[in-house]
Design a protein around this nucleic acid. Structure first.
Lengths: 257, 257
DNA sequence: TAAGATTTGTTCGTATGTATC
DNA sequence: GGATACATACGAACAAATCTT
């Protein structure tokens, strides 16, 4: 309980924070201290009003803060209330994406990291996927069997090919590694749409990417970690080069127009 | 504007979302559509109440959601209101940390990624730091000139040595790479405290870590990218081995006790 | 320094919606 | 269907912060 009985004020120092924020922090601490786990129930709204001696509105704003961070979920009705919730990967990606929204990452920045992580993931998965999983990967590749004939189709194919990497990331054992790769696939997806990076029609990107991904599935099935690593590294290097050329093209057009 | 004039309801389908959440999403879309940048002002509370035809409480809850995500900041008084805010690195790390809180990352997971990223950062910084920056790094190293004599001191030293990496990460040009490395330093810090990973008194970790970091600063000053990469890779490999041994010790004690 | 204007911050009472029994 | 136990939403009033004059 983070209420200072002397002053009647919530402790928590530094910049002046609004009461809902202070209450949210207090609740967060309370959850951690009591070691609550996913699904455990928090005190009811009324209870909180009593505990913190604050109005319903303030408590509700605090709960919304926690909810926005994915820390709690709330249900109405009898037996309802607020419960400790697990932050979903999707929400975590979105929250992190907000951070980079104004930061204008370059394609080069993203690929510098991708080039390091993706080959490691590929190697770690060699020989560890069952036929179902390998089949899923092949199904994704099958979604772009031929070069795109329109700009929209090309964009969709690019997104689909990024999904290949996102799926792969989910299969790994290392959740940190998987999350990071999934996140990069996501922001590249966003960049593709937002900056219209797909516009310079590029058959090369399609042809090479598809070949690499097929080779990769082969190496994974064969359990050849080193080949998987190699293929993925080559894939990253060519994709980076193509994407950067594309980025430069878009920039040139933008300045020219 | 995301209000459906036919039904009078906010659009946005799928799972039933509370009104504050819908409003928050609508405002987010509005900001993106209008291309608002950091510091730009949002409509006032009163204005929102009118636009969305909702009560003050609901609007305020929506604003809290956006605030919790770091997307807006709010000030009182004349000329006050809500403004588009930049998500701070610190907040982004905290939000992402929430995601991994229940996921029990192993030290091995973290080091698998660290081992890939840190050497790359080190290499990219060789010859690019000025004396002021190199001095800052040396100042961090100077905070643990001798082996710790107590458990608390050892913990503090470990945290300080992680700060070395966090500082280094800030100096890089690639914001994605820097953020990820800073984030990993943070969760290792938390793990150190939370799981009491520092308890098995370990002079070895201190001696080796310090030597590596000094070597690294030397390589950076000399502009030797390859040596910087090598030193960092070795540092990561030994640190990983030591940390994992420590993790195993703690686990054994835990089971035994 | 003081008063007034503007905008968010907080409270309270009441009413409504929703899920369980 | 009715009773119950919760969260959800509204509106009016008042408090606090901060800028201007």
């Amino acid at each position: 309980m983070s209420v200072n009985r002397e002053t009647g004020k919530l402790r928590g120092s530094g910049a002046r924070r609004s009461r809902p924020v202070q209450v949210a922090d207090a609740i967060k601490d309370w959850v951690v201290e009591h070691g609550l786990r996913r699904g455990d129930r928090l005190p009811s709204e009324q209870d909180m009003i009593g505990r913190f001696a604050m109005s319903k509105g303030t408590i509700r704003e605090a709960m919304r803060i926690l909810e926005a961070q994915g820390l709690i979920e709330t249900r109405t009705g009898p037996g309802g209330g607020s419960f400790v919730g697990e932050v979903s990967a999707e929400r975590a990606r979105a929250l992190l994406g907000n951070y980079f929204y104004f930061r204008d990452l370059s394609v080069a920045d993203i690929y510098q990291v991708r080039r390091l992580l993706e080959p490691e993931l590929a190697a770690s998965l060699a020989g560890r996927l069952d036929e179902g999983q390998l089949g899923e990967l092949e199904a994704v590749i099958a979604r772009y069997p031929e070069p795109a004939r329109s700009v929209e189709e090309e964009r969709e194919q690019h997104i689909a090919s990024l999904e290949f990497h996102a799926r792969l990331a989910e299969f790994g054992e290392n959740e940190l590694l998987g999350f990071l790769i999934g996140f990069m696939a996501r922001i590249l997806s966003d960049l593709t749409v937002h900056r219209k990076l797909y516009e310079p029609h590029n058959i090369e990107l399609w042809r090479r990417g598809r070949a690499y991904q097929s080779d990769l599935v082969g190496a994974l099935r064969a359990g050849d970690a080193e080949r998987a690593r190699e293929v993925m590294r080559d894939h990253m290097d060519t994709a980076r080069a193509l994407m950067e050329r594309q980025e430069a093209e878009v920039l040139k057009r933008f300045i020219g127009g």
